[in-house]
Amino acid sequence: MFRGKSMAYATLDLPVTSGSHIVRGGISREVRHIAILLYDGCSLLGAGIVAEVFHVANELAASGTRNEAYDVCILSADGGNVTCSSSVRVWTDGLDARHYIGFDALFIAGGKGACNAASDERLLAWLRRVHGNTRTIRPIAEGRTLLEAASLCGQRVPRDFGSYAMQSVREDVISDPDDRVDSMKSALALVKRDLGVEIARNVAERLMPDSGGNLMPLLGDALGSDPADKVRAAARWLQENCQRSISISDAAQVAAMSERNFLRRFKLEMGITPSDYLLHARLAITCSLLTDSELPVDKIARRTGMGNGDRLAKIFRKRMMISPTEYRQQSRREAGA
């Protein structure tokens, strides 16, 4: 029986400090939380290869240590055994309010059971709650049916902090055919982003040594030579790592530029300084957590890289002319109106 690993939520309660992650060559090595959503009648082919990609990535990233790059949980509406279209039973965890904090990536399995799953209002409500705090949602083939039923296809972060921050909480929903190579591409794209192109290549070679031609466009050079491309790649890295303790010099390393040149190029390309860009990304996530969670303000501040509650309150009053607590109350009143 295929068995998913439960998500280690205890790690999310730790304050963000400079020692909570490892950066090598500009790539963050902190544990990222991946969820794979199954349902009765789903196809195990695509979902299984996604799980295996992250499993192998963990082995390669650990390099003899116990540190894992990814924590993967397998979920379903009710938890327990899910019967896939191949009649294989998979043990899953049930949906939980703890998931409202979101994931680094959520994959939705494809398969002929998608239509029935799309009529489960409880499942759709859960998807609506977690999507705002989930950076990447990737349906596999028919899995897109669930997102369409939940009216989530094409949505982005609801609060506008400028076009540069719109993807700070989650990226575009991406739909892939239910196929081994395309499912692998979805997962490998994240491995490449998080751990670098070399580990992504090694994962692909171990799992599908005969697929090099199909995967070559994905596994090419991580950055182009154009300075504008390098700046945009560094901007994406800032968005993806904004909840961690990072510095502008880290982002300059990602762009393979000197810090002075990076600051100049970033302002020219993005129209804003890297520091303000990072702050806006953190504020977007902070606002989402204030609205959708019951976490205390101080814990939200630590979790979003804002230091502590006092510092967050000062930034909120300066930037938004309101306190975090007042924002929480106001946004919930508006949501209930």
Rank of each mutant, 00 (worst) to 15 (best):
R24T: 13
T304R: 09
R170C: 07
M320L: 14
C73Y: 00
S28P: 13
A235I: 10
A189R: 08
R201A: 03
R193L: 02
L38A: 09
R244V: 08
S76N: 08
T304L: 03
I108S: 03
V56E: 11
W237L: 02
H280N: 14
E171I: 08
L190S: 01
E326S: 14
V16P: 04
A105R: 02
F161E: 07
K314H: 05
A141K: 02
L123M: 11
G41A: 06
M320F: 14
G220M: 12
D160Y: 13
I22P: 09
A117I: 02
R201P: 00
V31F: 02
V53K: 01
R32N: 04
G4Y: 00
R333G: 09
L279F: 09
Q243S: 12
V254M: 00
S168C: 03
L279Y: 09
T134S: 04
T17H: 09
S183E: 01
M321T: 12
G102Q: 07
A35T: 08
K192H: 03
D276R: 07
T11M: 15
D178Y: 10
D96Y: 03
M320A: 13
Q155V: 15
A57G: 01
W91Q: 15
E294A: 10
L312A: 05
A8K: 14
V82D: 06
Q239S: 10
G162P: 07
N214L: 12
T11W: 14
R232A: 04
I101G: 08
Q155C: 15
E240G: 06
E294R: 14
L219C: 05
D120A: 11
D221S: 15
Q243F: 06
G305Y: 04
D13K: 15
L127K: 05
H33W: 07
L195T: 08
D13S: 15
S28M: 14
K5C: 11
H33N: 08
A204D: 07
R236Q: 12
I27K: 04
S186R: 04
A200Y: 04
G94S: 14
N58Q: 11
E121R: 09
I137A: 09
S163L: 11
A200F: 08
A313M: 12
T325K: 10
S323F: 00
S288F: 04
F54G: 01
A51N: 12
K5L: 13
E148L: 10
R98F: 08
E259A: 10
S43E: 02
R244N: 15
G46T: 02
R3Y: 05
C84V: 01
R303F: 05
Y70W: 09
V169S: 13
V173M: 14
R89L: 05
R29I: 15
V23M: 10
I272Q: 02
G307S: 07
H280W: 08
L146W: 02
A337G: 15
L312F: 10
K230D: 00
T83Y: 00
D71R: 04
S43I: 00
D226W: 12
L124H: 10
I34W: 00
L219D: 04
F2K: 04
E68S: 09
D13A: 15
A105K: 01
A69Q: 06
A281P: 03
